[in-house]
Simulated assay, not measured.
Amino acid sequence: MFSFPKNPVFAPVLFIYLFIIFYKSCACSRLHLNKKTTEKVPYSKLAGVSLLKPLKGVDPNLINNLETFFELDYPKYEILLCVQDHDDPAIDVCKKLLGKYPNVDARLFIGGKKVGINPKINNLMPAYEGARYELVWICDSGIRVKPDTLTDMANQMTEKVGLVHGLPYVADRQGFAATLEQVYFGTSHPRSYISANVTGIKCVTGMSCLMRKDILDQAGGLIAFAQYIAEDYFMAKAIADRGWKFSMATQVAMQNSGSYSIAQFQSRMIRWAKLRINMLPATIIEPISECFVASLLIGWAAHHVFRWDIMVFFLCHCLAWFISDYIQLRGVQGGPPSFSKLDYAVAWFIRESMTIQIFLSALWDPTISWRAGRYRLRCGGTAEEILDV
């Protein structure tokens, strides 16, 4: 039979830890995100940027997402579109945009270059080798941008900064699956992501990263990260190890995929959990920082010390968490979300209820499916491809 630990000291420490990360993430969301960037470099003197865009397949929003990059207001940049397979329908989308915007410096690379097990790196290699500018912007296919997004990121690239990243968020879309994604990327994810970066911990996702190319070249170029599935983590680590700072853009990395569902969201969360467990073994204690588990532990401590009713405390603590998450969501959104408070409540409860199942699923099976391949993770972040016999 399960029993709580007899020493309640751990629970107050957990409470203080959670309070601090809630405060940091909410404050940063309000003070930093969705603010007009102070011009640190004159517009005409902004550094040239090579945008590397990995593409595979077509979803309903792909052409509209890609088109936003052709309409960037930036003095000097090139768009390098990368497609692995010669029969990929994304090629036709790229050619259509190349014809529509002949004055934009853009090129299409087809075929990739096999340098390791990471399909994204393999796809990007020819474009990376042909990049002309000092800054490299790797941005996923499902991201859409505003005309001044790149200007915002480039202004964050100050003298001691080697990498500028965007906080992942989700655009307003129709359906409950979209609401679920938006609630997760507006609450749980930014809470850990923002608080880590404010504390000085380098926490980066590869959805939208602007990096100094010479630093990547010193680390061996993209090929040096082709043995990893989570290449973004190791690229960021290589930059940090060389003494460079990171900066978070004021604009979020706006995901706008036209293909989404609850099953896809769950699968994505399981894959990310597997990668975190593989790279950072301390992730094994991650569930205690989730709402229901943390509330239960802290409620038990409150009962042990103050003789408060565990269930009453549990419900009150969950309510406080629920309200704090809504404040966090509004900060990331830059205003009220597009869905109702009832939709938020339902999506929030379902997301929180999924956390333990997602974590256990990640522990159960060490293999991941990503793009068109299956991979077996190894300790330390490397992986091997599982080939069909």
Score class of each variant (00 low, 15 high):
residue 149 T to M: 10
residue 182 Q to H: 14
residue 167 L to K: 04
residue 146 K to A: 12
residue 169 Y to A: 14
residue 169 Y to W: 14
residue 152 D to A: 12
residue 157 M to C: 04
residue 151 T to Q: 15
residue 174 Q to W: 02
residue 171 A to C: 12
residue 174 Q to S: 07
residue 169 Y to S: 15
residue 166 G to V: 00
residue 192 S to T: 10
residue 188 S to I: 04
residue 157 M to T: 01
residue 165 H to Y: 13
residue 152 D to S: 09
residue 186 G to D: 09
residue 167 L to W: 00
residue 151 T to E: 11
residue 195 S to P: 09
residue 184 Y to G: 04
residue 181 E to Y: 12
residue 188 S to T: 06
residue 193 Y to T: 09
residue 172 D to S: 10
residue 187 T to S: 08
residue 166 G to M: 06
residue 193 Y to F: 15
residue 160 K to Q: 12
residue 191 R to D: 07
residue 193 Y to Q: 06
residue 179 T to N: 10
residue 180 L to G: 00
residue 165 H to A: 12
residue 152 D to N: 14
residue 180 L to R: 11
residue 151 T to W: 05
residue 183 V to L: 08
residue 152 D to W: 01
residue 171 A to K: 11
residue 162 G to N: 03
residue 193 Y to C: 05
residue 151 T to D: 14
residue 171 A to P: 00
residue 157 M to K: 01
residue 169 Y to H: 15
residue 190 P to A: 13
residue 155 N to H: 14
residue 191 R to H: 13
residue 182 Q to E: 09
residue 148 D to Y: 14
residue 150 L to D: 03
residue 185 F to G: 02
residue 170 V to R: 10
residue 185 F to A: 06
residue 191 R to E: 14
residue 153 M to C: 11
residue 178 A to H: 13
residue 185 F to V: 11
residue 180 L to H: 01
residue 173 R to Y: 02
residue 163 L to Q: 03
residue 195 S to K: 05
residue 150 L to K: 00
residue 152 D to G: 11
residue 162 G to T: 05
residue 194 I to W: 01
residue 160 K to F: 04
residue 168 P to W: 05
residue 183 V to R: 02
residue 192 S to K: 02
